[in-house]
Nucleic acid binder design. Structure first.
Lengths: 251, 251
DNA sequence: CGCAGAATTGATACATCTCAAGCTGGGTGG
DNA sequence: CCACCCAGCTTGAGATGTATCAATTCTGCG
């Protein structure tokens, strides 16, 4: 996975107007004059699956939106214990205006394309026009809600509930990107290795594997290959996750 | 605790200029004309220790800053498992502009005074002037960092490390409110019951109690009464917490 | 074909939970 | 003023879920 990949297409400058994440990203609310400013300071960067985008503590002189692919935010303790603290899907934002260094490791889980903005000019845009800051606030509040949802999972859910929750969340976000609803029979590709899942869920890789097997034996999910998952009845999966039946608090 | 308390002072309208949290709260960056607008739409509310400020799912037509006292944000699962997802100290902000209902239970842990703003007018202030929104973004990003720090704790730390972390964090925030640094001999009052601590740390009440006893036996902390804690050597406590030695990532 | 990374499965250890009993300190009523 | 009471806390013994250590087994790919 690390070296067999060819270098992905260098998308050096897609016009914002044609951007696939135009309506969801940090630029969603921008007027055309604001877009022009962003257009000037933006540049694309591509990463191969497995590559690290930035290391925690490193200087980071840009902020960015995920255009395509998936990245993870991970925190590491001195002795090597790792906890994923964020999963970045297309349109999600990375980096913090006003901060010099990265607070987390950012790793490309799949091949990844990011739309980067040099930090200083980006901060200027935020200071002089309102819509980027407004949208960023909205997105940050959403992320905070998601982080708190995850705190409940980490603190109080069983291993089985954690796995069911993760699959349900990925299925929901996946469907939402395609403007579909998650119900009845649902099919997902897990974009994460068992190890990455364990880092997200606060479990070991072995426990993740065992619980996935258990869910399969109980008919909650079917598995083809390693990553391709069929959920015959989404509502049943959600029950296993221990969530309120309605589940999604966000659109 | 619930009925013996007399009603706390009704601070009906403290002038913003004299407000103790003026320089840290959501209004920190406001110019005097912005403050005037906030002054018009604000009102104080007091709660006794143990009182619930709002229930998750309830309509919430205000946002607010904690002026004094401590409150908690808690999520509850259908079967009653509870996880605290936020600890609100003076200057912290509650509520989300643009949201109708509360996402979490908000409970006063100590006697509590909040500076409330009716939501609609507050949103108007945010839309027409920049400083409230800017400060709120900054505060939300800080909270997101704190939530992610907590995810590491919940997912990867041992019970002993969790307790040590909680005591260290409370000591740090307490010191920071008084513009002091946490080092050497430090004294704190825990504002939480053992049960509240267990809800925060993803543990049971009994495990919290045992680990506090263990830290005491090992000389990391000394205890007077139930809540009063003396930390003879703050650096040693931080080591027990498993954090990077520097610890505080925010001022 | 055979290797390497990823995943599964098994046996055992251990941290934390659960259930249960007692303690402690501050407030209350007799 | 004392005895009681009760919420909050501590401590104990045993159960249990997840981690750990250790083989295998898959799967895709050179």
């Amino acid at each position: 996975m690390t070296k067999t990949q060819i270098t992905p297409t260098k998308l050096t400058h897609v016009q914002c107007a044609e951007c696939p994440i135009r309506h969801r990203a940090v630029c969603a609310r921008c007027e055309s004059d604001e877009l022009d400013k962003l257009e000037e300071i933006k540049y694309y960067r591509s990463f191969q699956a497995g590559q690290t985008v930035v290391w925690s503590g490193d200087r980071m002189d840009f902020v960015a939106s995920v255009v395509s692919g998936i990245a993870t935010l991970t925190q590491t303790m001195e002795d090597g214990r790792r906890q994923m603290v964020g999963l970045l899907l297309p349109s999600d934002f990375v980096g913090r205006p006003g901060r010099e260094t990265a607070a987390y490791d950012v790793v490309a889980t799949t091949d990844l394309v990011m739309c980067c903005f040099r930090k200083k000019p980006f901060e200027d845009v935020m200071a002089t026009t309102p819509h980027v800051g407004q949208r960023l606030l909205e997105m940050t509040l959403d992320e905070l809600d998601a982080a708190r949802e995850w705190m409940l999972l980490l603190g109080r859910k069983t291993a089985r509930e954690k796995i069911a929750s993760l699959i349900a969340i990925i299925a929901r976000r996946d469907a939402s990107l395609r403007h579909e609803k998650s119900e009845g029979r649902v099919i997902v590709d897990l974009p994460l290795t068992r190890e990455a899942m364990s880092e997200y869920l606060g479990l070991t890789l072995e426990t993740v594997s065992r619980q996935i097997s258990a869910l399969r034996k109980d008919g909650i999910i079917e598995i083809e290959g390693k990553r391709h998952i069929i959920i015959p009845d989404f509502e049943r999966l959600v029950e296993e996750a221990g969530d309120d039946s309605d589940g999604g608090f966000l659109v």
